[in-house]
């Protein structure tokens, strides 16, 4: 098991190098001069030349990339933001707790609502509960988050005045963004739980459990659920990874000062080191969440644990 974890962590190195290279290339070819963006339209040509020299923007592409990787590996330095002049790492670490809180909150909502709804839908297939749930899931899945976000603000912040429309400092302020962000995950978790459960309750071992004289709640809650949760765990992991890396729209609408908003702003202002650092950070979080999910997976399914050994 430890060897497996170690191997997965080592595998992160080529992944991160690849991600860094892709982002670097993309940014290199993106039109727009960062120097001009940072110094403004009124800056003199000398000032711009000086900035480009200082930041190494005139070096050949591969030299720039090599310098970046060298600094990152040797000094743990992934540059300073062009616009705020503060280290990129500091900026990200300030913003990340907000994103983490928002994602975790959304994920908890998705799990708490999605899994029970999925189970009930499956055991009462074609009932009115099932139909209503599936309609809601369909709506939740197809509604874009920016639109749902605006609707929620309109209803709860503007008309009812129950909850604040932006910010992320109090628990009350966290509710709307989390719900908006969770909508799609709730729908996906519900649908996945339902379909997985439907498959499992027809399995032979469920019939075996019933033939022992076991009562229905244990047959469903113990025998069926643990097997049905295996694909749901994968889905939740992927979702959580995605939420962590890109609640960009939600963060923008509700003015949450998280990583997503940080990156959007960085892209707007051609803040190369910031974008680069942000994407790398997202790649790392995504990989770590994936690793954790795989380990959890092994905990739930002994067959996979056996493969890891």
């Amino acid at each position: 098991m430890l060897r497996y974890i170690l191997r997965r962590v080592l595998l992160l190195i080529p992944v991160l190098l690849g991600v860094a290279f892709c982002v670097f290339t993309l940014l290199y070819f993106t039109p727009g001069d960062p120097a001009r963006m940072v110094l403004g339209d009124l800056a003199t040509d000398e000032a711009i030349k000086e900035f480009r020299d200082k930041e190494g923007l005139n070096d050949p592409f591969l030299v720039q990339f090599g310098n970046y990787v060298y600094k990152a590996v040797a000094h743990g330095d992934i540059g300073r933001s062009y616009s705020t002049k503060r280290p990129v790492m500091t900026e990200i670490l300030t913003a990340f707790p907000y994103t983490l809180k928002l994602s975790a909150f959304a994920m908890v909502i998705a799990i708490l609502i999605g899994i029970p709804c999925g189970i009930i839908s499956a055991i009462k297939q074609y009932s009115w509960f099932d139909t209503v749930t599936m309609i809601f899931a369909m709506v939740g899945l197809s509604m874009p988050v920016f639109w749902l976000g605006l609707l929620l603000i309109l209803l709860f912040a503007v008309h009812l005045r129950w909850l604040p429309s932006s910010g992320f400092s109090t628990f009350k302020a966290m509710i709307l963004p989390s719900v908006a962000l969770a909508a799609q995950s709730i729908s996906m978790v519900t649908r996945m739980t339902r379909s997985s459960m439907l498959e499992v309750v027809r399995a032979d071992y469920i019939r075996t459990a019933r033939s022992k004289g076991q009562n229905e709640s244990i047959v469903i809650g113990v025998h069926a659920l643990r097997n049905a949760l295996i694909p749901v765990v994968t889905l939740c992991g992927l979702q959580f990874g995605q939420l962590l890396s890109g609640a960009i729209l939600t963060e923008s609408i509700f003015a949450v000062p998280g990583v997503g908003r940080l990156m959007v702003n960085a892209i707007m202002t051609r803040d190369y080191p910031m974008v680069q650092g942000g994407v790398l950070f997202v790649a790392v979080t995504f990989s770590i969440v994936n690793l954790l999910v795989d380990l959890l997976y092994a905990y739930i399914d002994p067959r996979i644990k056996a493969e890891l050994k």
Binding site: Y205, R210, D301
Partner: peptide, 25 residues
Amino acid sequence: MRKIRGAKIAMIFQDPMTSLNPVMT
């Protein structure tokens, strides 16, 4: 019926590969 199933009438199913719960010892 639950008191009869297993205690008085027990059943062996056709396919042993799928008759046991894969996540339980």
